[in-house]
């Protein structure tokens, strides 16, 4: 199981620390009115490798507009986005239609959609308008990953689990979210239980008051190894870290990644 980090706020330094510590992904905070594309864009600009799980809340905007924003963030991040589509207040039929239009917008096809909620192209501008539409740019990724959240989630895509019972151990991808306590033994048992329940990507939330190095010194040092293989020989995590290079500081980005900034 891989471990990612929930970003409770748009804390870019925390995202950068998660990137430097090798976490698999960050989950954007879920902004006001379902607005996460700007927060995700900021994270993309300030990180290099880490995946960005971008919450896309349905029902707050035209799905084509939402699709455009996600595609732009995917390019800013050079293809690191996972769209976590939150069905929010939509009923299952409405959610299915919006989701279908979103995914069609990210396909390589010119689209035409005619449903109860949306008609694209709308035909409102009268004759002479094209009968299909290309939403551009396409995402950087060949097939943008789509996960689901919310009460109307369905469609055979990965659904975010919030409890062990909600995890499907047969799914190729089973994302989950949970909070850490800050007690190492408890958190070790907890993440191990998630792995045993079948989660593939667990997004943890730091405990309140976690120190600035919690991501590196707890999540990356203890919890990620704990779930990276069965029966971890704990001597590899309990031994002292190697001394840092005593030479001159490198450029700011490199020094942060090397952990020399403390």
């Amino acid at each position: 199981m891989r471990i990612g980090l929930q970003l409770p706020t748009g804390d870019l330094d925390l995202a950068a620390r998660a990137d430097a510590a090798g976490l698999c992904a960050v989950l954007t905070p879920g902004g006001v009115a379902g607005v996460d594309s700007a927060a995700a864009a900021r994270v993309a600009a300030r990180t290099r490798d880490i995946r960005i799980v971008l919450r896309v809340r349905l029902g707050v905007e035209h799905p084509v507009t939402l699709a455009e924003e996600v595609a732009v963030v995917d390019h800013i991040s050079a293809g690191r986005v996972v769209a976590l589509v939150d069905t929010a207040d939509l009923d299952p039929d409405a959610a299915a239609e919006d989701l279908a239009l979103l995914r069609a917008s990210w396909s390589g096809r010119a689209i035409r959609h005619d449903g109860p909620r949306w008609r694209v192209p709308s035909g409102l501008m009268g004759p002479g308008m094209p009968t299909t539409l290309a939403v551009t740019p396409k995402p950087a990724q060949l097939d943008l990953p789509v996960w689901l959240d919310g009460t109307a989630a369905g469609a055979g895509l990965p659904v975010l689990a919030r409890s062990f019972a909600g995890a499907d151990p047969t799914a190729q991808v089973q994302p989950a979210v949970d909070d850490l306590t800050g007690d190492l033994d408890t958190d070790r048992r907890h993440v191990t239980a998630w792995a045993e329940a079948g989660a593939t990507h667990l997004f943890v939330r730091q405990p309140d008051g976690a120190g600035v190095d919690f991501v590196r010194d707890v999540i990356a040092r203890y919890l990620m190894p704990e779930t990276a293989m069965p029966h971890l020989p704990r001597i590899v995590v309990d031994s002292s870290p190697p001394l840092p290079w005593p030479g001159p500081r490198m450029a700011p980005t490199a020094s942060r990644e090397d952990g020399l900034d403390g």
Binding site: L12, S37, A38, A39, A40, A41, R42, A44, A45, R46, T65, E68, E69, A71, V72, V73, I76, L133, A134, V135, T136, P137, K138
Partner: peptide, 20 residues
């Protein structure tokens, strides 16, 4: 929007990245 060359359709996320 909807132009073949991918002309930026979402300027606020792009602006957010440049500001960051």
């Amino acid at each position: 929007h909807f132009f073949y060359d991918g002309y930026c359709p979402a300027v606020l996320p792009a602006a957010a990245a440049a500001l960051a």
